[in-house]
């Protein structure tokens, strides 16, 4: 258990370093960086590489935003396997509902509960 936490720490940290290099060296905005990382995640799953990555790194692979691209592709592929081309369209959100639904639900709750504060960081 300790080992898998350490692996999650190291792998997750390294994925974030890639993101930081995209910020600082490639001078991409956060929106560009995150979009690119999602696309990378989805392409990796196309080659069947992301699931083994999750098996190895656990949360180090599922928590970074790349895993969102992976689960979208994964859902589409699972359905495509069952239903052919129609599955490509219908399977997309099969696996990955939680990130988006949680963000929407907690977003609305936060809007009810909080107000922004301009305190300096």
């Amino acid at each position: 258990m300790i080992v898998s936490v350490i692996i999650a720490f190291i792998v997750g940290g390294l994925v974030c370093v890639i993101g930081q290099l995209l910020f600082d060296v490639a001078k991409l905005t956060p929106a560009h960086t995150l979009s690119l990382m999602v696309v990378i995640g989805s392409v990796l799953d196309g080659f069947g590489l992301y699931e083994p990555f999750i098996d190895f790194a656990g949360a180090g692979a599922t928590i970074p935003i790349t895993s969102f691209g992976n689960s979208l592709t994964h859902g589409a592929l699972q359905e495509a396997e069952k239903h052919g081309f129609i599955g490509v369209l219908t399977g997309m959100f099969e696996v990955t509902s939680s990130g988006i639904s949680a963000a929407i639900i907690f977003g609305v709750i936060a809007a009810i509960l909080f107000k922004s504060k301009g305190k300096v960081s």
């Binding site: 890639i18 993101g19 910020f23 960086t33 995150l34 790349t66 929407i104 907690f106 609305v108 107000k115």
Partner: peptide, 30 residues
């Protein structure tokens, strides 16, 4: 946002950063 100024991509890339992007916009536009 304080974690973000310190951590940069370290707090933007994980799904918590995705959540922060959605939630901060929701709060802001209340």
């Amino acid at each position: 946002k304080k974690i973000g100024q310190f951590g940069g991509a370290g707090s933007a890339v994980p799904v918590t950063g995705f959540g922060n992007a959605v939630i901060s916009a929701a709060i802001e536009h209340k």
